[in-house]
Design a protein around this nucleic acid. Structure first.
Lengths: 224, 224
DNA sequence: CATTGTGAACGCCTTCACAGCC
DNA sequence: GGCTGTGAAGGCGTTCACAATG
């Protein structure tokens, strides 16, 4: 097997891979052994051409006339996403959102394991959340093996850049920022932003401007 | 002033408008009266050309040689986003995430007011969250004036489509889905998805494949 | 014969670059 | 001189459509 070099996968494809991964996981659990691009597209809420093009970026895993082998494709997608190794998640900011994220099975699922919780509020430090004690932010530097660590910022915007800087300093591989602040992190640390308010406001925009809604006019709407 | 018809605003622009809005809000609060596209770009984490092109979709609000009037531009952006009217938010699923969302000032900020909380778990029904009682999902239909309501799905994936159907039936204008389920809603109800796991997995992908990171190689990374 | 993989066409957003204006 | 607004160019992802294939 020839290892392909410099295969650049488009960002939109990267974001869809987790969708395929989840769909395949369900198919696998239900005992399905084979799936066509059309079926997978349906499960992921995209169209079949996109599925085929996306998967073709990973390699040639399908069989013409038959489709894809669910388990084999699943293992390939999981490998591509790096889900066949262990990821550690560190959450900074244990307000309501931090608690929700810490509790969430979704976060601990899929080889993402929450390993540490931090806050600056003395009143919260020491509190146990799902068997993990909240520690003071100053202890952040005790984190080790940091390249496999993803930092999650769940603190107020005012503190976000400072927390970001500390995470970068500690050497985490990537940061997921739930605060509305626009942050910067020196490469090679990756930064990604999730902003509830933006989503709500985007929805509000489309409610006010229905004519601006994109996509084929048939079928159910799905902005994403 | 001529009202422009059929001005279709690209989705990427719509998603950036909330960023400009927030930056302008801060500028306004700090007493700044004028801002250039370059400054606004910096505050929002994008480039100046994009800011100008984005804003040009709304109208001609800038002054060559000077820039934009902060307060005027802010009011225009807020109007465009529909933030000059009152939005009501209904949250279904009061687990950790639902609680976090209900508590979040961010959600109640900006003319989005959380007006009702629902769950199916009898143990949770009746609980007060920020002065709002959790009600049983079966009471969902008591919601009124539904076109200005945005439904938020914060329940497990297994129940998400059912909840979505109910929200559609009640007549909400839009739905924000925090569950990992891929949902469908009949038009004109708008649907948008926020999936933490997808974000984490996308980050993991880029940590594993640094060569796939997009963007100019200079400057700090920021995937979004 | 159903279904994949993929060039090619298409459409859309981004970026450039500069005329026009304050 | 500084900065906006925008046509034009460029780049990139999506969709099409079909040859290739088990």
């Amino acid at each position: 097997m020839i290892e392909r070099f410099a295969r650049r996968i488009p960002e939109p494809t990267v974001v869809r891979l987790p969708l395929y991964q989840r769909a395949l996981l369900e198919l696998s659990a239900s005992g399905t052994t084979t799936v066509s691009s059309a079926e997978l597209a349906d499960a992921a809420g995209v169209n079949a051409a996109k599925v085929r093009k996306d998967l073709s970026h990973l390699g040639t895993y399908g069989t013409p006339g038959t489709g894809y082998d669910v388990n084999y494709l699943l293992s390939q997608v999981r490998h591509e996403l790096g889900l066949d190794r262990e990821w550690q998640v560190v959450i900074v900011g244990m307000g309501n959102l931090g608690h929700a994220l810490a509790h969430s099975q979704r976060f601990s699922t899929q080889n993402f394991r929450t390993v540490a919780l931090f806050d600056v509020d003395a009143a919260r430090v020491g509190e146990q959340v799902d068997g993990l004690a909240i520690r003071h932010l100053s202890e952040l530097s005790s984190i080790e093996d940091t390249s496999q660590v993803i930092g999650v910022i769940a603190c107020p915007a005012s503190a976000a850049q400072d927390v970001c800087n500390r995470l970068v300093e500690v050497g985490v591989g990537a940061i997921l920022n739930f605060s509305p602040a626009v942050l910067t992190a020196a490469p090679p640390v990756l930064l990604r932003r999730v902003d509830f308010a933006v989503e709500l406001q985007a929805l509000a925009f489309y409610v006010v401007h229905p004519e601006a809604v994109a996509g084929p006019e048939e079928g159910p709407h799905s902005l994403l």
